[in-house]
């Protein structure tokens, strides 16, 4: 464990807490893509099922349990509790266009052709693009509540912080994980546009609005 990874994980944790806070306080899931949230459940379940047979640490175990349970809880909030506030007509990105190619990529690129390893690869690939329905929705509506942008910023910062973590691990442990690194770079790159508007507008106290 190093500070980059710790802060990356804490940022990931924070993003979920911000999202839960947004939904609970506004009693609405307006502006949140259900498809992206459903993809995250898929990602966490596919990757973290090893918590039943592979012990890493208490930290690792608790985080996995938290990510799986909170993401499922968010789906419940969106589909059941605050269902009327979710508008599927603007959440139109075709998620199957993401899942399909990720399955194919995982079958080709994995560290071992076993079920858990292919699932692991699949989850890494899917995570890298799972934010696309959300970003697409943002693009369509052209604006977002400030709290939603904080959620996205924390989520983007998480994978961005993993990059220095991998560089650190390369030098300190001599290990490199090409699948995670390449997918992580893609994942972070997808946030570039968002971060530009976030830094130049939201953090200056303005509303998140995309140029028409």
């Amino acid at each position: 464990m190093n500070l980059f990874r710790l802060f990356g994980d804490l940022s990931h944790l924070a993003s979920i807490l911000i999202l839960l806070h947004k939904i609970q306080t506004t009693r609405s899931c307006r502006g949140i893509s259900f498809k992206t949230q459903a993809l995250y459940v898929t990602v966490f379940v596919a990757r973290y099922l090893d918590l039943f047979y592979d012990w890493v640490s208490l930290y690792n175990f608790s985080m996995k349990v938290f990510f799986i349970s909170s993401s499922i809880y968010i789906l419940y909030l969106m589909k059941v509790r605050f269902r009327p506030t979710h508008d599927p007509s603007i959440d139109t990105f075709r998620a199957e266009y993401l899942v399909g190619p990720c399955v194919v990529l995982a079958l080709i690129f994995n560290y071992k052709f076993t079920f858990p390893e292919v699932l692991w690869s699949f989850s890494i690939f899917l995570e890298s693009v799972a934010i696309l329905p959300q970003l697409f929705m943002l693009q369509r509506t052209g604006e977002a509540e400030t709290i939603t942008t904080h959620y996205l910023a924390a989520l983007g910062a998480y994978r961005a912080l993993y990059i220095p973590n991998w560089i650190y691990r390369y030098f300190s442990e001599g290990v490199v994980d090409p699948i995670a690194v390449i997918a992580g770079l893609v994942q972070t790159a997808l946030y570039v546009d968002f971060f530009y508007v976030y830094f130049t507008k939201v953090l200056q106290g303005q509303k998140f609005e995309l140029p028409a």
Partner: peptide, 10 residues
């Protein structure tokens, strides 16, 4: 470098 998988990461 050995291509080790970081399955200890989240």
């Amino acid at each position: 470098t050995k291509p080790v998988t970081h399955h200890d990461e989240l």
